[in-house]
Design a protein around this nucleic acid. Structure first.
Lengths: 222, 222
DNA sequence: GAACGCCTACCGGTTTCCCGGTAGGCAGAA
DNA sequence: TTCTGCCTACCGGGAAACCGGTAGGCGTTC
């Protein structure tokens, strides 16, 4: 039985290229693709999936949140995080969300195949880049649970939308919240991160992968 | 004779995946990879290359500058731009630099194969996404030459400070201008680029190199 | 000289941001 | 149970953003 894989990344070309890469291993079969967290959940709801290669930075629902919700609905699915960055927080958050592997896009393609094989066996795989950054956190498990996600899930969600150019009232609409609530989240984010305006929030979101650095909206407009 | 291709992208995994994708066409052969503009030039200096798939956003020397220098030294090489963005300026700058094709990563993988075949025949290929944006510019060639710095020097200066988190009054102080003047520049920038808030301005500044991204430093730290 | 582009500067107005405080509901931990 | 953290929601108020228009100075170009 082939391993049924779903690819989640906002760049179609990357998905197609990855598909070609994974096609080399006859044990693997890419059965679905998704361009956002929402699409991943939709895909998993309609067909059996064994493993998801999940990009972290996607417009709309990002990879961490998608992993959370995906595993809540389908605990048997394995998730491997695939990101441009090896940010420590990131890795730990994704692992806390239930992912079994983490690889940066700076790694070789073989690294992904190795990760898939390892995760398939029920073990956890971290690429060399990130392994070092996490070992410290693994020693005192407290950090793994508490200190790392300086931002709560809700706050990350709000931050992502701020960085994408939404105003507080607009964010409130999207999340079905009162504008005042969004404002509170906004202020808490700024206080926690010691940032004081939208420009700094946007930079933080981009450099930390909370918001895709690609201006995907622009790409879609044209 | 196979077409000798070099891949330039800062993500090794993307290069490897792309390599697998291109391997489907027996007419093509990926003979080299590069992670930056500097590496592209170095590669072309040591071995014959027919075509380069060039990512725009790379740390260090970016794809546009690299295309300029590459074609100055090797005019026969064909360059296809490969970017996450379909920004009009971007496309025009790259074409002015001598590239023969432009594709966004949001396109399908087949699109790249189609572009390679077209460019190989000496023609120019633009993916549907960007074709529309450029046709206007192609009509009056003036724009193709001059319109590139759509923003004036002053406007770029103001944009950079906005993206760094300065408010208009603070920018006015730094530049020894009246706050109202800065506001005018801000509005002109937003009108020209069709952006409507600080978050979008910041993203634009980062992705266009007007403001240093800091993304690359983060990636390098780890 | 006229036209154009750029920089400079101000007027008005609405919306949003940003900062401060308070507070109830609710889940999990001490 | 009490405490803590998170999410939710409101109040007020000053600052800044955002949108529209007008306009003079200045250098270049036609």
């Amino acid at each position: 039985m082939k391993l049924r894989i779903a690819l989640a990344d906002d760049h179609q070309m990357f998905r197609h290229a990855l598909r070609a890469l994974l096609a080399r291993d006859p044990e693997l079969e890419v059965v679905a693709e998704a361009a956002s967290g929402e699409e991943v959940l939709a895909v998993a709801a309609t067909q059996p999936i064994d493993l998801v290669c999940m990009d972290i930075a996607m417009p709309g629902m990002n990879g961490i949140e998608a992993t959370h919700k995906l595993l809540a609905a389908h605990p048997a699915i394995r998730v491997i995080g695939l990101s441009a960055f090896a940010d420590r927080q990131f890795v730990i958050e994704l692992l806390n969300a239930g992912a079994r592997g983490y690889i940066t896009k700076g790694e070789a393609g073989d690294e992904l195949l190795r990760a898939i094989r390892t995760v398939r066996q029920g073990r956890t795989y971290l690429c060399p880049d990130v392994a070092g950054t996490v070992t410290g956190a693994l020693r005192d498990r407290d950090e793994l649970d508490t200190a790392v996600p300086r931002l709560t899930a809700r706050e990350r969600q709000v931050l992502q939308l701020i960085a994408e150019g939404y105003t507080s009232p607009r964010i409130a609409e999207r999340l079905h919240l009162a504008p005042s609530t969004v404002e509170v989240h906004r202020r808490n984010i700024m206080r926690k991160l010691d940032l004081h305006n939208v420009a700094e929030l946007t930079r933080y979101a981009i450099t930390n992968g909370i918001s895709p650095s690609a201006v995907s909206e622009v790409a879609r407009q044209v």
